[in-house]
Each structure stands twice: as structure tokens, then as C-alpha cells.
Design a binder for these strands. Sequence first.
DNA 1: ACTTTTTCTTACCCATGGGTAATATACGCG
DNA 2: CGCGTATATTACCCATGGGTAAGAAAAAGT
Lengths: 220, 220
Amino acid sequence: MDTSSPAPDSPWLPFESRRRARDEKREAVLRTAVQLFLEEGYHRATLNDVAERLNITKPALYNYFRGKDEILYECWAMGQERVDEIIAAITAAGGSGLDKLRQLIRAYGAQMATDFGASLVRFDVRDLSAKHRDIVLAGKKGIDRTFRNYITEGIADGSIAPCDPKMTAFAIAGSLNWIGHWYQRDGALSPQAIGDEFAVRLTEGIIGPAAKRRRSKRPR
Amino acid sequence: MDTSSPAPDSPWLPFESRRRARDEKREAVLRTAVQLFLEEGYHRATLNDVAERLNITKPALYNYFRGKDEILYECWAMGQERVDEIIAAITAAGGSGLDKLRQLIRAYGAQMATDFGASLVRFDVRDLSAKHRDIVLAGKKGIDRTFRNYITEGIADGSIAPCDPKMTAFAIAGSLNWIGHWYQRDGALSPQAIGDEFAVRLTEGIIGPAAKRRRSKRPR
DNA sequence: ACTTTTTCTTACCCATGGGTAATATACGCG
DNA sequence: CGCGTATATTACCCATGGGTAAGAAAAAGT
């Protein structure tokens, strides 16, 4: 997608750098918007507010987005993209179901303590257009399915104790999603620390026989 | 609306039944409002919508409430009241820290699967007046404190394994609060079933030595 | 029956904020 | 340089929806 590595003096360069400048501005809008949406709430935050923080005026935003709801959608998309990458990496790396679940909890929990991560759970799908809403719901479903899959795999390979994957996934994802509601950047814990903390805490109760055996030399 | 069971001839009765009729109407407004706020979201739900469902017109609502935000607040208050009762009952009944925590999870989780319960976590405090916001935040703090207290007590009496009460409370309350976001009345599980399910699941991992000993004759 | 109070309706006000049209400014380009 | 294209601004439109004023309708009081 990005035609990177621009040969220093190609006649395209001005064109390319212009496009990059545009993309950077677009992202700057999103960073400002997501921050304001989280601070004030989507409905209280106005496009004038967003523009003001960027030292521009409202109509300038329409050079980059079709409307307020599209900005909301793109904020969500930024977060979803990162989670998708996380999932892809974990699935690719392989390991036991419990290992993968722990890694997912760690990385997803850390994401929840970031702006774009929190946007995944703080924003209301009903503020989106029907088309975007469908995409978002599909994304949420994908995350849920991943949690369940890892749990199911863990039960199969014995690393996770038998349990209802659906409810267990609900319980774990609920804990993590809630981070997006209480975490404040000025808090004592870093996103990483949050992720680590939850990764151990949320898997303590469901360790299966295969995984227990391996760690039995260090009983709690 | 229906002036039921009026003791035929007391001089107060008209006055009293009138006041009661008023209270009943007030509550009917709240039931309709909380439902609509949850369905559509607070900002998308209009007072006209609320009134229409009640077969009245918008200004009629102002006989019972000072404004939209007060309706929101009163919806929250209904849920908070129930939780306060639950907490009072559990604390009064006594028992080990783990017992109390389990009962709280059970009852609080069940509440999250009701309209007024969900309103505790789905509504945005920033939509309230400063005064009401303070009350709500105090209520939330009280619930959090109760979770932590029960956990701390459980660690002290040995029914709960040593852990960080703050983070454990976050993890548990997060799971439960999230119920308010995914539970749909048309789902397969009843609020009670939800509460029961989470009560066992969320305490599996933190059972302490004292409680383990007692249940050791029924190993998993 | 007449008055008073409560309750509700009709008809309105108006601040807010998303979105648009017309226009000015910066910038690459031949 | 002047031409065209992004990019931004100023000035506006207008639908929405919370809130209010004035007065009808229904009870309650006497």
C-alpha cells in the first residue's frame, strides 16, 4: 500500500510527500478526535472543539472526512487494526491454548489502556452509519471468537481446565473491556503493567492439568 | 393510573391515593425512560419519544421531573438503591469474606441483567448536573469499596488467597459491569442464572486455604 | 354549583451543532 | 509567471430537541 523508500529525486516526490502530509494530518485529526471523544463523550464533543485543538476551523475537517460519524468510525478502525495485528501475531506464533490466551489478555489489556484501544469499547455503535456499524460489529465478533477459540483449544490440549468457553470468554473480555472505562493516563500503572497484571490474574482460575503439571515445582 | 384497593371512605384516602397515583406515574416514566435510554442511548432518545410511549406529551413530563438529566439521575438512583439494599443485607448476614463476596457477585451480577441495574454502568455521569454527578460517583465508589472490603476480609480470615484487593476488585467488577453491556432480555439466561454462573466462575481462582480445606472432599 | 388545584395539551422559543456554499490562500507545475 | 489544484476560511443554513408560557380539562375541595 505505502510506496515507501522514495528515490531522493524522482519527479513523483512532491506528489508523494504531499500525500504523506495529508495522511499525517488525517491521523492528527483522529488522535485529537479520539482524545476529545473520550474526554467529553462523543455527543458533547463538537467538531468545532476538535478543529480548535488543531488550530483549524470545522470545515477544514471535511477535507479529510465525510462527517462526524466517519471520524468516529476511523478512530475505532485504528484500534481494531492494532488488535487484529495482535491476534494475527499470536495465532502465528502458536503455542498451547493457555499460552495464546495469556498473550491475548496481555496485549489486549494493554491496548484497553490506550486511547484507540479504549475507543473499541467506549464508543457506541449506534452513532455509526448502518454500513460502518456492520463492520464494527463484525470486528467485535471476531475478537470474541478469538477468545473463545483459544479457550477451546486450551481445553483440548489440556492447558485449560474444562469450562464453558462462551461464559469464560465473556468474563475475561469483560474484565479487560472495563479497563477502557476506568483507566486514566495519569494513573500509577502503565498499559503494559495493566496487561501483565490481568494476564496472570484472569488465568489463575482456569489452568488445566497439562499446564499445572509443568509449574508444579513452584506451588503458590 | 388505576386507583386500586381504595379503602372506601377515609377522608385522607383521596389525598393519599392521589399522592400514590402520582408516585406510580413517576415510576412509570422512569421505567419507560430507562428502557428507551438503554435501547437508543441517552442522547438519541428524546423526551418526545418517552412521552409518546406513555401516551402523553412532553411537557407533561415536567410535572414529575425538572428536566431530562434529572430523569437520567433518577433511573440511576433506582438501580443504586437496589444495590445498596443488597449490600446492606449481605453485610448484615455476615459470613466469611469469600461467602460475602460470592453473594455480592451473585446479586450484583443479576442486577446487571436488569434495566435499572444496567443503567448503573451504561449511563454517562457527564450527562448529569454537577450535584447529581457527585452523588453518583460517591455511589460507585461505595460499591467498589464494598468489593475491596469483602476481599480484604476474605484474605484476613483465610477464605480468599492473598492478592491485591484493588486489582482483584477491578477484575471482578469489570466482568460484572460488562454484563450490563451485552445482556439482552431475549437471551437464553435469566438474570439469576447469570449471577449464579459468575459467582462460581469469578471466585474459582482466589479461593484461600481456609475455604479449600472445607470443600476438599469434593474435588473438581 | 362554584372555586381551586392539579394535570396535561397546544403552540411556541431558541441554543446548539452538523453540514454546506462561496471564497480566499498556499503550493506544485509547466 | 500565471494556471490549476488542494486546502483552508468566513459566513451561512436548518433540523433537532430541550425547555417554557398560556390556557384547557379533569379532579378535589367546599
